[in-house]
C-alpha cells in the first residue's frame, strides 16, 4: 500500500480546515472534506486502509483540541468501517447508491461531531448545521462522481458553449 496519496489527503483536509473552509462555506454551512475522503476510500479501497485512514483523519481533524482526539479517531474509523461493509450490499454502478452512502455517512459524521463537541441545542445543530452540510457535501460528491465516471468531461463542458 502506498502511503503518499493518503498523506496528501490528510494535507488536503488540513488545507481545507485552515484556509478553504471559510471561503467555501455558504451561510456558515461548510463542506465536510474529511468525511468525504473517508467515505470515498471506503468505496474504493479495502477495509484496513479505510480503518487506518479514518483513525489518522480523526487525529488530524481534532489536533486543535487534544481532549477530543480519541473520540474523533474512533468515530471516523468506525464510520469508514461501517461504510466499507455497507458498500458490499450496494450496486456501485448506481450513482444514487453511492450518493446515498456518502450522504448517510456524512450525516453520521456531522451528528457525531455535534455529540462530541457537546452542543447545547442538539436539534437546532442537526437541522441548521448537520443537515445542510450533508446536502452541500452530497452535491459536491455528485459533481465529483460525474467527473470521475466521465459523465462530464471538459470536452462535453466546452461543447455547451
Amino acid at each position: 500500500m502506498r502511503v503518499v496519496p493518503f498523506l496528501i489527503y490528510l494535507i488536503l483536509i488540513v488545507f481545507h480546515q485552515v484556509i478553504f473552509r471559510d471561503l467555501s462555506s455558504i451561510y456558515n454551512v461548510s463542506f465536510n472534506l474529511a468525511g468525504f475522503f473517508i467515505l470515498c476510500i471506503a468505496l474504493y479501497k479495502d477495509e484496513f486502509v479505510v480503518l487506518w485512514f479514518g483513525f489518522a483523519a480523526g487525529i488530524v481533524v481534532s489536533a486543535g483540541d487534544p481532549q477530543q482526539m480519541g473520540w474523533f479517531s474512533l468515530m471516523f474509523a468506525f464510520i469508514g468501517f461501517i461504510a466499507f461493509h455497507v458498500r458490499g450490499r450496494l450496486n456501485l454502478e448506481s450513482m444514487s447508491a453511492k450518493l446515498g452512502l456518502i450522504a448517510g455517512g456524512i450525516f453520521l459524521c456531522n451528528i457525531g461531531e455535534i455529540i462530541i463537541n457537546g452542543s447545547d441545542n442538539f436539534i437546532f445543530q442537526t437541522v441548521y448545521t448537520a443537515l445542510p452540510s450533508t446536502i452541500y457535501t452530497s452535491v459536491v460528491a455528485w459533481l465529483f462522481f460525474l467527473f470521475k465516471e466521465k459523465r462530464i468531461t471538459t470536452e462535453k463542458f466546452k461543447s455547451l458553449f
Binding site: I11, I59, A63, G64, P66, M69, L74
Partner: peptide
C-alpha cells in the same frame, strides 16, 4: 489496534495528548 489506540488517546494523560497534538499541529497545520 485502532480501538486500543483511540482509547489510549481518550484516556491518556494530558502530556501524551498534547505531545500528539503538538506534533500534528507542527507537521500539518
Amino acid at each position: 489496534l485502532v480501538i486500543v489506540l483511540s482509547l489510549i488517546l481518550l484516556f491518556a494523560g494530558s502530556s501524551i495528548k498534547l505531545m500528539v497534538s503538538d506534533t500534528i499541529v507542527d507537521v500539518f497545520y
